[in-house]
Every structure is written in C-alpha cells, then in structure tokens.
C-alpha cells in the first residue's frame, strides 16, 4: 500500500520535472515557450528581408494581383536583370569593394599602432588622448565635413579615393575610435612576459611590436577589418560628399535608383510592364546587400563572437 503511493508520487514528480524543469534542465514548457518566442522575434526581425526578397521575385502581373501575397506564381528574374543594368552592377560593385576594403585595411593598421601605444606605455596626457578619441566618436560628421570638403576641392582630391584614405592614414577613419578601443583592449589582455623577455634580449620597441605583439593580435585585426569594411560599405554621408562625381558605390547608386532607371528606361518610351515598380527597386536593394550577406554568412563566426573576443565592453 505504502510502496504504491510512493511510486505514484515519484511518477508525478517525474512528469512535473519533465514539464517544468529542475535545477539541471529547463523543462518542456519553458523550452517550447523559449523557441516560440525566439522564432516569433526572429520572424519580425527578418520580415523586411523576406518581404524584399519575395517582392523582388514578383512579375508585374503578380504585383497587381491581390491574391499573390507571399508566393509569386513563378520564378521571375526580370526585376533583377533591370536592377543589374540600372545599378551598373559590375562597375559599382568593384568600386564599392575598393572604397570599403582599402580604408579599412589602413584603419586597422593605424589603429593597432595607437592601441598599442595606449596599452603599453604610461605617458603624460594619456587620459586626455583617451578622452579625445572618445570625442571623435561623438562629434557628428557634418560638424567637420565642409572644411574638409573645401580643402579636398583645393587639392583636387574630390571624387578620388584618397579623400577617404587620407583621414584613415591618420587614425581618423570612419568609427576609428571603436577600432582603437578594440586594439587597446586586445593588447592589454596579452601577457607582458614575452615582450619583457624580448626587451631583455635587446630587441627594440618597434621590433617587439611587429614581431611579438602584432601576431598575437591577429583576431583583433580580422574583427577590425571586417567591421570597418561593412561600415565603410554602408556609409553614404561622407562617400556622397567626398566621392560624388568620381566614384559610384552601390549604396550611392541605389540612392538615385529612380533617376538612373528613368535614364535607361524613359517613362514615356517603355510599355507599362517596364515602368519602374517596387519589385525592381527591391531587387536593386537586394543586389545592394547581397555581397554583404555573402560576407556575413562566410565570416559569421567572426562577426557574432567579435564582442567576446575583442573584450570591447571592458572592465
């Protein structure tokens, strides 16, 4: 009798543990709620992208048909063909890559120098330098951009990639402050022992930096370069002011998509199916982020683990 009761109690406890969890596991109810919640938020998060992708695959007839919401009636790539031509894709793609990769390589190189100097040497006024670095992150671009633009105009550098490379060479590239902090944190977390040993062996400071500190900071380099590349790619305020008329990047071309489309397909000259519609625009938008998506999925580990690896949050 008593044993039976014990058994029942035990079963109940087991079921309860299964559903509600214990100290070691979350339990069924919680797990299901967790996944549902994450999936729902994930869907809302990706909604603009899904909307963009589905719409960009719709043919003009699908667009007009109210029955077609999420599944186009067929695979239609006409929008992409048009967007490809309007964006002048091969040319703008190459200049977008150049305009984002070159400054970011320079930024990473210069920021590693600055970050090392801040992490390894106790010099007078270091705190002031730190405060000023943070200030450069806060100052809006429009408070400094006009005199720069006028200077570049005098030097004949407008529309030239050097307009972006010059500031980067002096640690004033786009969001350089963040990369300086990343390198600062990285070098601070590296043990000093090796460098001190090398110094006792008579190695110069520069040699120590290049041969011991830099190789150890490889993750910081990768993180800085990919983030800088992405941010330079997406930056349009400075690129429009400095490069307009010389270099066309993908986002710049997307910004004047309507105008470029009408140059290729004059509104009065083409039939109704070739007029500019939202499907073509969204195809253009998708082509715009496609290289970034590819880069993201290839390097996703570096992106999402970056904050932990670089210790940017600091203590």
């Amino acid at each position: 009798m008593e044993g039976n009761l014990m058994l029942k109690k035990f079963d109940l406890a087991k079921i309860k543990t299964f559903l509600l969890g214990s100290r070691t596991s979350y339990g069924m109810v919680f797990t299901v709620v967790l996944y549902l919640l994450l999936l729902a938020i994930g869907f809302v998060y990706l909604y603009p992208l899904l909307f963009m992708f589905v719409t960009s695959m719709k043919s003009p007839t699908d667009l007009l048909n109210p029955m077609v919401q999420w599944v186009p009636t067929g695979v239609y790539l006409g929008n992409y063909e048009k967007a490809f031509r309007v964006l002048a894709y091969p040319t703008t793609l190459v200049s977008s890559i150049l305009v984002s990769v070159l400054p970011s390589l320079i930024t990473a190189a210069v920021c590693s120098l600055v970050g090392y100097g801040l992490a390894r040497y106790r010099f007078t006024g270091k705190n002031i330098v730190f405060a000023l670095i943070l200030a450069t992150f806060i100052i809006p671009a429009q408070n400094t951009v006009i005199p720069q633009m006028l200077t570049y105009k005098d030097l004949g550098l407008l529309g030239n990639i050097f307009a972006l490379l010059l500031p980067a060479m002096f640690g004033q590239g786009y969001r350089s402050a963040i990369f300086i902090l990343i390198f600062y944190q990285t070098f601070q977390s590296l043990p000093k022992v090796l460098e001190e040993a090398a110094r006792l062996d008579g190695a110069s400071d520069l040699k120590i930096f290049f041969q011991i500190a830099l190789p150890a900071a490889l993750p910081a380099f990768i993180i800085s370069i990919i983030f800088s590349t992405v941010w330079y790619w997406n930056e349009t305020y400075l690129t429009v002011i400095f490069l307009e008329g010389g270099i066309q990047t993908l986002p710049m071309q997307l910004a004047k998509f309507t105008q470029a489309y009408q140059n290729l397909y004059p509104p009065g000259m083409v039939n109704i199916f070739d007029r500019l519609n939202e499907a073509v625009k969204l195809a253009g938008t998708f082509l715009n982020i496609l290289p970034l998506l590819v880069m993201y999925f290839v390097l996703q580990k570096w992106f999402v683990e970056s904050v932990e690896r670089s210790g940017v949050t600091g203590e």
């Binding site: 120098l113 090392y116 100097g117 390894r120 010099f123 330098v129 450069t136 408070n143 002096f170 300086i180």
Partner: peptide, 21 residues
Amino acid sequence: YGYGFVFLWIIGFAVFTVVPL
C-alpha cells in the same frame, strides 16, 4: 615611445578633426 605610437593619431586629430571643427 608612447607618443611615438600615438603620434599619427594626434596629427590626424589636429588636421582632420580640430581644424575643421
């Protein structure tokens, strides 16, 4: 050495931030 490493940034800060500001 500290200023040696930070030197580039200080020049850049003066030329590309302070002066335009």
